[in-house]
Design a binder for these strands. Structure first.
Lengths: 135, 135
DNA sequence: CCGAATCCATCAGGATACTG
DNA sequence: CAGTATCCTGATGGATTCGG
């Protein structure tokens, strides 16, 4: 098993060790997903395009620096989570369109709040870092 | 106010290639921090205690499963970012108190929004995952 | 009591090449 | 055009131990 999925589903079909950790925190599990390198950016791009669909190559262009592998993995993860939907156009060459599901759209709200905080305060965070580096 | 400042590119490995990647996205950098395993939980615990201070061992007890190393690293990171403050009581044995700074407190708002989304919708996400596993 | 240091397992994620 | 497969690296983070 090379990869047991990025968003590790509880792969303990039976009693692993019980409850060593506290997996009952949905926030942690959410952050495990949107906290990955490209996921939140994909949601943002798709949200901005919504309700229009976006093609694979178009997404790759919007997300500078992402590889096919990571884009594919990111979209797969979001699709598995029911946050984005796929539509394949059976042409030659084939075209695949992505869009946020209604559930994915609701995620955009708190994500936008986080973005606003980042744009408002990350400069101050950076300043704090500089101050600390001086020591 | 993003006084834009000198817009210091955080990590230019060596030669600045212009804009191959987009390091100007503060959201990514924010998620790189709060997306780590324990950071958001620490902020939550500290926010709930605010304006009271919390001791190291107390934090460790609240965050089930965390090691000293990770708690220390998490708090250091938050302190460097100016989100939490430390107060050392020079007793024997020494006691160290942590609390959110005003800046850290402002982060609690969007973080709480994310938490609400998680509690409201993660069950649906899980259901989507099950449905996908069936294939 | 606090946390720094070491060792070690795992994994995200980048580069590349190949299929349909 | 869209997606998969393989290889490889550095960062994440857990357990443990030492120091102040």
């Amino acid at each position: 098993m090379t990869s047991s999925s990025t968003s590790g589903a509880p792969r303990s079909p039976d009693g692993d060790r019980g409850d060593l950790f506290d997996p009952g925190c949905p926030t942690r599990r959410l952050l495990d997903r949107i906290g990955t390198k490209w996921t939140s950016m994909a949601v943002k791009v798709l949200a901005e395009a919504s309700p229009e669909e976006v093609r694979f190559a178009e997404l790759q262009r919007s997300m500078t620096g992402i590889s096919q592998k990571m884009l594919s993995a990111t979209l797969q993860g979001l699709a598995r989570d029911g946050l984005v939907g796929r539509r394949v156009e059976a042409t030659v060459p084939p075209r695949v369109y992505y869009r946020l599901t209604p559930l994915g759209l609701t995620l955009e709200e708190p994500l936008a709040a986080l973005r606003e905080w980042a744009e408002a305060h990350m400069a101050e965070v950076d300043r704090a870092n500089r101050r600390d580096e001086a020591s």
